[in-house]
Simulated assay, not measured.
Amino acid sequence: MSRTRRQVRKPPSTSRQKRSDRLHRILVVSEGALTEPEYFELLNRHIQHTLPPHADKIQIKVDPKTKDGKARRKAKNNPMDVVDRCILLRDDDARKNNTKDIPKYAAVFAVVDVDQWDDVRRGSGNTSLLAKALSKAKDHGIHVLVSNPQFETWLVLHTECTPAGDQQGLDRQCRERSLLKGKNIHDDFPIDQYKRAAERAKEHHHVGVNQIGPKGSTGLFHLVDTISKWTCLDR
């Protein structure tokens, strides 16, 4: 009687990455409590639905959160509060997930406006509150994305329109192009144009991370560049 050959089990492949190794977690903390979080939540959903099969996974955590078109907490008071919140959430997340198969945040972004925060009278000495926040962010590895004068600059870049350099002009552009309903992102917002918005932002003013650009500028394109790199969206 012939003896049955025992099947040799192959060792697990070392070339195959674990699922967690292909997950890039991003934390985005905004100064605003409604418009900005709604936009980033919409962007996150759009990315999940459009990722190609070979792409790395992206998970964007947005703070603060919204619910049923309403803010779940008050807005941050100023850019320094936003940077402090980034540090707190990042470090707390790292402690909680230290023993779990969950990767640390691959990038942490603070989204703030210039508004009145670049006025030295709101800071100390000859340094504005915004400048102090940018300095602290650099020391703690936080990427601050500044819009001048405000976040609506980024929203307008999703259209073919050049953003106005003042709040009234931006509000008018958002109304005329149905980008916002009050403080809420419009149901028909052209979120699929986010990569084109990043290209337009760079064409207008190539603002660095943790830098303040001129009127009509925004550094939000750095977030898009990061997402595109990790998800292979341009391949």
Rank of each mutant, 00 (worst) to 15 (best):
D115L: 05
D91H: 01
W117K: 00
D91W: 00
P11N: 00
T14Y: 03
K215P: 01
D118C: 01
D81E: 14
T218A: 15
C86H: 13
P12L: 00
L157S: 11
G141R: 03
S178N: 11
L223K: 12
G216I: 10
V83S: 06
R3F: 04
S30F: 04
A133G: 05
D139M: 11
N210A: 08
D187S: 11
L180T: 12
R122W: 10
D92Q: 15
P52E: 10
D225R: 09
H49L: 07
V28T: 05
K100E: 15
P37V: 01
E203G: 15
K202Q: 14
P11M: 00
H222G: 09
A106P: 01
H186G: 04
R177W: 06
G69S: 06
K61N: 13
L233T: 13
G125N: 15
R5L: 11
I102N: 04
F151H: 04
K96G: 04
P53F: 03
G125P: 15
S30H: 04
C174F: 07
P11E: 06
S20W: 08
K202F: 05
E199H: 07
T162M: 15
I47A: 04
V8E: 10
L157W: 13
P12E: 01
L179N: 02
Y105A: 02
A201Y: 15
R85E: 14
Q17D: 05
D171G: 03
Q150Y: 04
Q168L: 08
H143V: 04
A164P: 00
L129F: 02
L179W: 01
I47V: 09
P11S: 01
K65L: 14
S2F: 12
P52H: 12
L223A: 11
L180Q: 12
Q168K: 11
H204Y: 12
A55W: 05
P79E: 01
R235K: 07
A131I: 05
T66A: 03
F109T: 00
D171Q: 13
P52Y: 09
V62L: 02
L23N: 05
H143S: 14
E203D: 14
H204E: 05
L157Y: 11
V156L: 08
H46M: 00
R175H: 07
F40H: 10
L157P: 12
R121T: 08
A133V: 06
C174V: 01
